[in-house]
C-alpha cells in the first residue's frame, strides 16, 4: 500500500489525479446535480471516445513524437465503415476493415515520422486523411445505419452504456501493453533516449511504428463508435477530437519529450476535460465560451506540472 502511494506520488500522473479529485469535489459543490449516478454515467459515456483516442495517442507521445492526425483518422474510418455498411456489407467485416485501415494509417504515419518530425508529418497526414474522408462521403452525410451497428454506440449492458465498456477495455489493454510488456518497455526506453535505445540494440524503427499503429487503431475504433453513436457519418465529425486528444494526454502528465507518463494520467486528463465541459453545460455556460475555459485548464494544469517538477528536480540535484 505504501509502495503504491509512493509510486503514485512520484509518477507523472500525480498532479492530474489530484486535479481530478479537486475538480470532482468542486463540481459537486457548484452543481448539486453533478453528484447523481446518472450524471456520473453520462460523464463516463461522454469521456469514452476521448479515453480511447488519448490512450492510443499516449503510446506515440511516449516515444517522444506526436500524432496530430487522430481526429481525422477517426472521422475517416467512421465514414468508410458507414459507406461499407450502407452498401450492405456485413457489420463485422466492415468493422474489421475499419481497424485494418487504422493499421495502414499507423504504418504510414510511423514511417513518415521516422524521417520527418512527427508533428509536421502527422499535421500533413491529418489534412490528407480529412480530404480522403470528404472524397469517400462525396460531400454528403450518411445516416440511418442498421441497429446491428448503431447498438455498439447507443446500447447498454445493464445500466452501463456499451461505449463505457468499450472504453474501459481499450484503456485496460493499453495500460497492460505499455506497463507490462516488452513492447511497452521499449516504447518508454526509446522515448527516454532514442540514441541509447539504438546502442542497446533495440529495433527502434519497429518500436516507433508499433506505437503509431496502436494509436491509429485506437483512432479507427473510436471513429467507428462515433458513427455508431451518432447513427450518422460526416467527414468533419472527428475534427473536434484532434486537439482535445492531445490536450487529454498532456494534462495527464505524459511528457511531450517522451519516456515519461502513461495511460493512468491520460485517463485523468480525459476525465478532467470531460468534467469541465459537463459542469459548464450543467451551469449553463454557452458552448461558444467553453473553448476559453478548456484552453485555460490546459495551460494551468501543464504549468503546475512543469513548475513543480522543475522544483523537484533541482532539489534532487
Amino acid at each position: 500500500m505504501k509502495n503504491l502511494w509512493q509510486s503514485i506520488k512520484e509518477s507523472r500522473a500525480f498532479y492530474s489525479l489530484i486535479g481530478l479529485v479537486v475538480l470532482v469535489i468542486a463540481s459537486s459543490i457548484i452543481a448539486p446535480s453533478f453528484r447523481t449516478v446518472n450524471n456520473m454515467i453520462t460523464i463516463f459515456r461522454q469521456a469514452s471516445l476521448l479515453l480511447i483516442l488519448s490512450s492510443g495517442l499516449t503510446a506515440v507521445l511516449l516515444t517522444g513524437t506526436m500524432d496530430l492526425s487522430v481526429g481525422a483518422t477517426a472521422g475517416f474510418v467512421g465514414c468508410v465503415v458507414a459507406q461499407l455498411i450502407k452498401h450492405d456489407m456485413n457489420v463485422a467485416v466492415a468493422t474489421l476493415i475499419g481497424l485494418l485501415i487504422g493499421v495502414v494509417i499507423g504504418l504510414i504515419n510511423g514511417t513518415l515520422a521516422g524521417i520527418l518530425p512527427g508533428f509536421i508529418a502527422t499535421y500533413g497526414t491529418n489534412w490528407v486523411i480529412a480530404g480522403l474522408g470528404i472524397v469517400v462521403m462525396q460531400g454528403a452525410v450518411i445516416y440511418d445505419l442498421p441497429p446491428a451497428f448503431t447498438q455498439l454506440g447507443v446500447g447498454y449492458l445493464g445500466a452501463i452504456p456499451n461505449l463505457v465498456i468499450f472504453a474501459s477495455v481499450v484503456v485496460l489493454i493499453l495500460y497492460i501493453l505499455l506497463s507490462n510488456t516488452t513492447l511497452g518497455r521499449k516504447i518508454y526506453q526509446y522515448g527516454s533516449n532514442p540514441v541509447a535505445a539504438k546502442y542497446a540494440a533495440m529495433p527502434t524503427r519497429r518500436v516507433v511504428l508499433s506505437a503509431f499503429v496502436i494509436c491509429s487503431v485506437c483512432a479507427a475504433f473510436a471513429g467507428m463508435l462515433m458513427t455508431a453513436r451518432l447513427n450518422a457519418a460526416d467527414a468533419a465529425m472527428g475534427d473536434t477530437y484532434g486537439l482535445q486528444t492531445v490536450a487529454a494526454a498532456v494534462i495527464g502528465g505524459t511528457s511531450q519529450k517522451g519516456g515519461e507518463g502513461g495511460v493512468l494520467g491520460t485517463i485523468a486528463g480525459a476525465l478532467i476535460l470531460t468534467i469541465v465541459v459537463n459542469i459548464m453545460n450543467l451551469t449553463g455556460i454557452p458552448s461558444q465560451a467553453q473553448g476559453l475555459v478548456i484552453g485555460s485548464v490546459i495551460i494551468i494544469m501543464v504549468l503546475i506540472d512543469t513548475i513543480t517538477r522543475k522544483r523537484q528536480e533541482s532539489k534532487m540535484n
Binding site: 516488452t182 526506453q189 533516449n193 541509447a196 546502442y199 519516456g259 515519461e260
Partner: peptide, 30 residues
C-alpha cells in the same frame, strides 16, 4: 547520451538489452 535512459530507473536500464532474453513471452514482470 548513448549508455543510459536517464529518465528511467536503475532497474529499467539494467534490463534494457536483455529484455527479450529475460521475457521471451512478451509480458514482463517488474
Amino acid at each position: 547520451t548513448q549508455g543510459l535512459a536517464l529518465s528511467e530507473s536503475i532497474a529499467q536500464n539494467t534490463v534494457a538489452v536483455s529484455l527479450n532474453k529475460i521475457f521471451p513471452n512478451f509480458f514482463i514482470n517488474m
